[in-house]
């Protein structure tokens, strides 16, 4: 179904799979008839959106924190390292892991839900799909992070990554202090979806 993706040319635009387009078409036709309201649909989706993710992504992060060899693999070839845990995207998209450091905080944007790493993060939150998030994150990332309640140290630069249909980013937050000896399961509990998009950092150890 996604055979377009296998051609070796670059897309400057976007594409919808048959299913994406069909569902949008149903939504358009039903909205025009007044039978559904896209806002009500978003609200239902929002309610369920955490069901498949972002626990997969949290396990990737926890393993990277606990296992230096895995962290290196994730840096070198995130697609393969993530696939080794059984999390593969259905469209064969490439993944890149971007690691936060004391010098640099990473933030991922894209207006298109097709450019979100579903296989590790589940469904994108509604705000991620909003045009305002992307445009503002590019112009004023520090201001956007402040709205999420995240105040970064002044000296820490913010790097904004724009996801594409071919390449999707996963932010690896810094490991919180005081988590030596934590199991991977305990570590994964500290990793929120927003921390892997870059609008939050990892939670403090309790």
């Amino acid at each position: 179904m996604h055979d377009h993706d296998n051609h070796d040319h670059h897309h400057h635009g976007n594409e919808f799979s048959d299913m994406q387009a069909r569902v949008k078409a149903l939504e358009t036709l039903l909205t025009a008839k007044g039978l559904i309201d896209p806002k009500a649909i978003d609200a239902i989706v929002e309610t369920y959106e955490t069901k498949i993710g972002p626990r997969n992504g949290a396990r990737v992060v926890a393993k990277a924190w606990a296992d230096a060899e895995f962290a290196q693999w994730l840096k070198d070839d995130a697609t393969a390292a993530i696939a080794s845990l059984g999390y593969t995207g259905r469209q064969g998209e490439h993944m890149r892991a971007v690691f936060n450091t004391p010098e640099t905080h990473n933030l991922v944007v894209c207006t298109l839900c097709s450019c979100y790493p579903w296989s590790v993060l589940g469904l994108p939150p509604v705000w991620y799909k909003a045009p305002a998030y992307r445009s503002r994150a590019v112009i004023d990332p520090r201001g956007v992070l402040a709205e999420f309640g995240l105040a970064l140290p002044e000296g820490q630069a913010i790097r904004v990554w724009d996801s594409t249909a071919e390449l999707r980013y996963l932010v690896i937050p810094e490991r919180p202090e005081g988590t030596e000896g934590f199991s991977e399961e305990q570590l994964a509990e500290l990793v929120s979806r927003d921390a892997m998009i870059g609008t939050a950092i990892a939670l403090e150890a309790a």
């Binding site: 569902v23 039903l30 649909i41 978003d42 469904l123």
Partner: peptide, 18 residues
């Protein structure tokens, strides 16, 4: 329900709404 991709959740949500 568990969804693998957004369109699945949207199709589910439209059905619930209808």
């Amino acid at each position: 329900p568990v969804f693998a991709e957004p369109w699945q959740a949207e199709a589910f949500a439209m059905t619930v709404r209808l």
